[in-house]
Design a protein around this nucleic acid. Sequence first.
DNA 1: TTGACAGGTAGGAAATCCCCTACCTATCGT
DNA 2: ACGATAGGTAGGGGATTTCCTACCTGTCAA
Lengths: 114, 114
Amino acid sequence: MATTSAAPEDRVFAALANSTRREVLRLLREDGPQPVQALADHFDMARPSLSEHLKVLREAGLVSEERQGRQRIYRLEALPLAEVQDWLHPYERFWRDKFKELGALLDRLPDDEA
Amino acid sequence: MATTSAAPEDRVFAALANSTRREVLRLLREDGPQPVQALADHFDMARPSLSEHLKVLREAGLVSEERQGRQRIYRLEALPLAEVQDWLHPYERFWRDKFKELGALLDRLPDDEA
DNA sequence: TTGACAGGTAGGAAATCCCCTACCTATCGT
DNA sequence: ACGATAGGTAGGGGATTTCCTACCTGTCAA
């Protein structure tokens, strides 16, 4: 046990911490639900390794699988990402303030811009 | 080297993958800029361990430090979180669709709700 | 039924992460 | 100058991650 513990939020952030897994999410988003092999084609990695990444994504609730014959169709499940956005929200005013500062800075020295 | 590689996006997601680090961000957001010891008081962890977390956050651009006498005041730098939100954005319609489905489902069986 | 295909699980190696204690530097107060 | 305080770095240990190869199960096609 170790997979059993960890808050769901924790599992989502951990799942997103790997670029292969983020790329899988992008592929499912852009190309729609697809079997493992179609995903695996995009990676220079043994298929079982990708299987493990899919397991991490499944346990984070970020993908679901549907068996279809001998294939398993993976599908994006974006709901947990809404939680990430919720987590992000209270920080938003901080980066907006920063953008405003940067904008004001640019306004004060508009001399040699292209 | 290893810190040198890794795309900045990668470093931000990796930094967020740890709950202690997310808590540090929350403390800086809610309580404002503060020295290391003030942060350390919230954790049941040796101070050097927290120092390492702060280093990870610094290298992800999520905090900055300002030396003030013998203290170092850490401050939230939220700009990299804007990139996370940008990353999140193309997924938004997926979870919104899902919310709609769930709403419709609830509408279709409104019988025994409190 | 038998072989090929899709994909998961087992087990292990190397790298990384997360925590520790020990130690170092820099600044402040006396 | 000296001790105390703030906080970083060094080095190490155990847990976890990320990859691999080998192997297993389930399904389809001949």
